[in-house]
Design a protein around this nucleic acid. Sequence first.
DNA 1: CACTACATACCGACCGGTCGGTTTTTAAGC
DNA 2: GCTTAAAAACCGACCGGTCGGTATGTAGTG
Lengths: 201, 201
Amino acid sequence: MAQSQRGAETRARILEAAALCFTRAGYDSSGVAAICDGAGVSKGAFYHHFPSKQAVFLALFDRWIDGLQHAIDATRIPGETVPQRLEAMAGVAQQVLQATEGQIPLFLEFWHRATKDPEVWQTLIEPYRRFRATFAGMVREGIAEGSVRPVDPDLAAHVLVSLGVGLVLQSALDPGDDIDHQAADQAIRLFLIGLTDGREQ
Amino acid sequence: MAQSQRGAETRARILEAAALCFTRAGYDSSGVAAICDGAGVSKGAFYHHFPSKQAVFLALFDRWIDGLQHAIDATRIPGETVPQRLEAMAGVAQQVLQATEGQIPLFLEFWHRATKDPEVWQTLIEPYRRFRATFAGMVREGIAEGSVRPVDPDLAAHVLVSLGVGLVLQSALDPGDDIDHQAADQAIRLFLIGLTDGREQ
DNA sequence: CACTACATACCGACCGGTCGGTTTTTAAGC
DNA sequence: GCTTAAAAACCGACCGGTCGGTATGTAGTG
């Protein structure tokens, strides 16, 4: 632990600087030199801690996913109905995105590169499908307990994730500070009405 | 005019080749040389017709927006209620995206570069806001005619566009051939239930 | 001859990654 | 606690290659 405290700090600084560069300029336009500069570190140090520029990018992605997963797990409060949990999730997702302060462009960067590079795709698609499966499971659960209309769970999950992705993407393009915060809640609420169709929750 | 027929064809070939390259490899990874190669044209010809690589990209974007706008205008059938028109729009949007066959990654490319380059952003944000205003207007109209619940029109438009963007983005990342086609319809339908809340349409 | 529509060769900047060498930290022997 | 050797951390010059864009020349046409 204290073994390589200095090394760990340098590594963290590189990650931080890389996140900033990728967020501001994008992956392709961010040179390794610029990242090193931002981290106050030489190129040698960079390649000592990471085998490639892409490795830093993927490490950043893993860190991001871990945070998201952790936040989602926190909403697993038993004893509530599925619609209630979905509604709670809207607040959490929004809170996560706000906590990662301005890292939304980074999310777009992940998405973009995943469609170009197979390795990035592999890394992104796994948690992505896991999330979708989680939502589908919740919908299925809701149908079983009668709080949700009998819709295709996979389709509903697909729509739900689309909603989330779309909201994030829009705030990346055109950050409307006040709108964005309301939008997630409103979107989920509208969607929930469609799902429950006036049932008792 | 017949004079510039050859020129127009060359220009079209360059645009076509550029679309293919950008779709497959992305903007940054597509060299001008590769585009010229794909078009069967020299670099001189390229820079004769376009002042820069970015100009080709923006020209491609304009072409895409024109197609989309044209398709949306086609749904302006008077005499139908707003929910009916929104539902029809789901089919049209899907048809447009399918007609431009596999150009969904190009859409992502537009979005991505808009967040990095001010000029691209300017070009994208204008039609984008116009679309959103159109939707907001439709929702407002629906509220007036009583076919839509009294929600905030701008917020509803925001959510609606998010849904569209999210659906397109997902199909760019993970094309589920069968799901994607149903998803747009199903999504709009669920959303419409939320908007109308069981009113007569 | 003048003008459009191209072709070819070429330039300078930049970028990811390497490499030989230097400094700092750690661990072992005494 | 001191010495020392090895290992980890770090430095910065450098390389091969790519890329956007330019300069210059030419073939065809009105």
